[in-house]
Design a protein around this nucleic acid. Structure first.
Lengths: 386, 386
DNA sequence: CTGAAAGCGCTTACAG
DNA sequence: CTGAAAGCGCTTACAG
């Protein structure tokens, strides 16, 4: 640690400038304005070249505001919180001082003294995937209504080290609890990090042994029913364009597709795996379209299905006359594609809100009943084979 | 405030149980386990029925950990931060104590003492719209790389009161700065709330007088060029399916469309306004499809365009032979829709990262050069009129 | 309505 | 390597 000697040229009184703050700031300024070389101890020369603007040294505190306004510290606090009446004249003086200094309350100090944990963490995966997007939007809206801020962390299940450090950043905040948007993606080794932090989660399969409060978005049932729908139309089997595998394990939607075929005694064809990207699905679709055996395709989500339908079109075949295609999610565009997509609606809006409410309820039940709007939606993209 | 007298039956020593904590917790327990009626002052009877579990009274602190582990406070802190070497045996004892107590560090206290502001705020609008989704995902990823947590606040520009309270929640946190994803949507009255908090923003038009660090996603240029493209194909005029108006003012994309028609001396038809929803666009599309005058439609984003194409199909007309349709954004599905959508690519990925880097750079320039991948993409949905 | 003092949970020099 | 003390910026009883 370098020793810093600075002559105060500040209008603020000495009391408010602590040594630590000054050092940190001078270091920062040095780094920005000079070289990257570390400073020799007590190197007053280098310091003299630092453009020392006092305003940048340290953000103003209520002590500064109080001094400028000529009132006491608690009075400033009262103006801030509004909990206790303050004379209007005084109030005005304090407000003016705040404005003059550009004062902003320090959230950390506030949270500390009040013992409040005003942030809800959301652990998600790729935030651009439809389901996560919707859950996130609904959680944010509901959380704010309850006075909470939402912090998001998108974990890459493939990168454990990164996930752990991401969680550390999250847990270093005043977090009241965490909503985990995909419990199965949530590595066991991460659970230790959370310690006894309250969590709630969204279950995407049919697990029944989850010991944390959870809501269910039943991907398994959805995928099973979509596959069954195609089989019931008379297709011998159903091909699958899958989500990325997760550490060797297939995704829930893929497993359910497989189970449906198994239960029906249908042949289980090779899976076409994607990374959720349109490009990968488009490529998979091309392979499927050129295979005369293929009469029905179930895609792990609607967007993959759109891309596959494009490939079929490019191959000169038609949906559903030549090949039936079904998706999963029922994202808004499913109804307007030509042909409109047969899919299974999952109620992510409900899931987001319900998971958050579960988290905030001190005496939460393990699961929450409710009325998710889910179900198979048969549109134009599926038909009996010719 | 009720007066609470509790006989300590706790293994924790008295020092760590402050009156305030006890009161708050007892209040909570009373509320949860008994009735909603407020307690009479000093009502010891009611209190005796409260199941007083000491574990729930107050989360453990490093003082508790230190006591259990038989070490001093600073030692626990050293194990926590890892900044200063601690004997391995001691470390183990401390870790065991943490585990036993279910200790979690208090983020607020940490942020306060370290003077760190570990959160980046993101002010957005509807987080489910494509551009916002992408910017958010990129900001989150880049911010975490820099050790920051991302907190999001979705403001409804139409609801000022709600927006102000939302900002208050955000500003009550240890925020290092705020990225505003749509500066034009950001009401002037909100600017005061932010005080001197560092912000950076994404500009969607061609404003040049913005006095905060910003990056540009040039919606105006994009909409102008798309409209021009349609005109240059020989269409007499171009109809528009618009985004919702914002307090009377038309959106940037709409204004640019109008300007392009004006500059070309083309007739300016009535706008078909939507609320960004697929349903509204589908309805607008039906009206457009039934109007024999309509030969070209520019939609404020790709998703609206998809819905309009559906309507045209339903009316028995074809895209682009009967009516040309163009969108804006170039979201991933644009290339696989049938017909593939002519649109203008905006580089939201770049914008998100660039805006964040601008925010975190102490000596940030007002704007950031870079290489956004933007431009008109002509596909299958536009053609000359017949 | 206002001020002096204590305390929130943690980290960091300082002194062994 | 470890402990006693000060301090981060704020709020909240307590005492006028």
């Amino acid at each position: 640690m370098i020793n810093v000697f600075i002559q105060l040229v500040s209008p603020l009184d000495e009391h408010t400038l602590t040594r630590r703050n000054m050092e940190a700031d001078v270091m920062r300024m040095l780094k920005a304005s000079q070289s990257d070389k570390p400073l020799a101890e007590g190197s007053a020369d280098a310091l003299s070249r630092v453009p020392l603007s006092v305003e940048r040294l340290r953000p103003p505190t209520i002590a500064d505001v109080a001094r400028i306004a000529g009132v006491s510290l608690p009075t400033v606090s009262r103006v801030l919180t509004g909990n206790i009446p303050v004379r209007e004249v005084t109030k005005e003086r304090v407000r003016a001082a705040m404005k003059e200094l550009g004062y902003r309350p320090n959230g950390a100090a506030r949270a500390l003294v009040q013992g409040r944990q005003p942030i809800v963490g959301v652990i998600t995966r790729d935030t651009t995937l439809y389901g996560y997007t919707r859950m996130l939007a609904n959680i944010e809206s509901r959380a704010r209504q309850a006075g909470y801020l939402v912090a998001i962390v998108a974990l890459d299940p493939a990168d454990l080290q990164n996930s752990i450090s991401a969680l550390d950043v999250l847990l270093g905040q005043p977090i009241v609890g965490v909503v985990v948007l995909d419990y199965t993606a949530y590595d066991t080794r991460l659970k230790d990090s959370l310690g006894n932090l309250p969590i709630s989660t969204v279950i995407h399969g049919d697990q029944t042994d989850i010991d944390v409060p959870h809501v269910r978005v039943d991907d398994r049932k959805a995928a099973y029913e979509v596959t069954n729908h195609l089989l019931s139309l008379g297709h011998r089997t159903v091909h699958h364009v899958a989500a990325p595998a997760r550490g060797g394990e297939p995704q829930i939607r893929e497993a359910a597709w497989r189970q449906a075929l198994l239960d029906a005694g249908a042949r289980i064809p090779e899976v076409h795996r994607t990374d959720w990207s349109i490009a990968a699905a488009h490529k998979a679709g091309a392979a499927l379209a050129s295979d005369p055996e293929v009469t029905a395709v179930f895609c792990a989500n609607d967007e993959l299905a759109f891309a596959v339908m494009r490939s079929i079109h490019e191959a000169g075949k038609r949906v559903p006359q030549d090949i039936s295609v079904a998706g999963l999610d029922d994202q808004p565009l499913a109804g307007v594609w030509v042909p409109a997509l047969t899919t299974y609606r999952l109620d992510f809006d409900w899931a987001g809100v319900a998971a958050l409410e579960l988290l905030m309820d001190l005496d939460a039940p393990l699961t929450r009943s409710g009325e998710p709007l889910s179900g198979l939606i048969i549109r134009e993209s599926t038909a009996p084979p010719r």
